[in-house]
Amino acid sequence: MESVKPILEFKNTCVSYTKQTMAVKYVSAAIERNTITSIMGPSGCGKSTLLRSVNLMHNLYSNIRVDGEILLNGENILDMEPIDVRRRVGMVFQRPVPFPTMSIADNVMAGYLLNNIHISKSEKAKTVEQCLRSVAMWDEVKDVLNKKGTFLSGGQQQRLCIARALAMKPDVLLMDEPTSALDPIATNHIEQLLLELQKEVTILIVTHNMGQAERISSHAMFMYLGELVEYGDTKKLFSQPADERTKAYLKGKIG
């Protein structure tokens, strides 16, 4: 057992959409700071559901129940204000969603605008540049910062969304299949980016692409029917899976 305190810890986390069934069942796992953890598993196994529990997205819908504990730096998220949690836990969605009426610069600063956090002009310009640089986009868009973000390509839009999440300086970044709507080149771009970003932020990424999980993540989870079947070192999980179900999934037999 390592001595570093985990940044994020699931303790018997359960999520249910309906009274009868649980979409996520008693998941327990500790996630180390500044790592990339990929969540894999067949469609419908509860990956998105687990991910969305971390930034309290489920609170938006009154029918969804979340039980157990999710600790962020030792504090139970489920007892915290959603607004505080979401400022510390960023999220990137499957399809890029730039805010259509905002300029590229405003999109990056959207977290500040929406929360009425006032900062000076120079501070703003600095944050925009820094965030766009960290998603390797500054040179591409530095001359069109005041244009709408919707004119960008899909890959650029997704990077803009990552920059938007990074601008809030989150501790944890949640990503739900962030590259599934992108072509291989844009995907490669984003993978390189994530490897860079893990110095600053802890990343939890849902992916259907095993190659991607192998390339970027140090830790991997395998979920099946709402359960966390296996969690550990990515290389080990791929080379010597402990569970039969993981083995079958990796061989392409389930999923």
């Binding site: 960023g90 999220m91 938007r164």
Partner: peptide, 16 residues
């Protein structure tokens, strides 16, 4: 997703 993306940044519903 547009609304969720706004809320995910910590904004309240009215602001989004």
């Amino acid at each position: 997703s547009l609304q969720e993306a706004g809320l995910a940044l910590g904004a309240n519903r009215a602001s989004v």
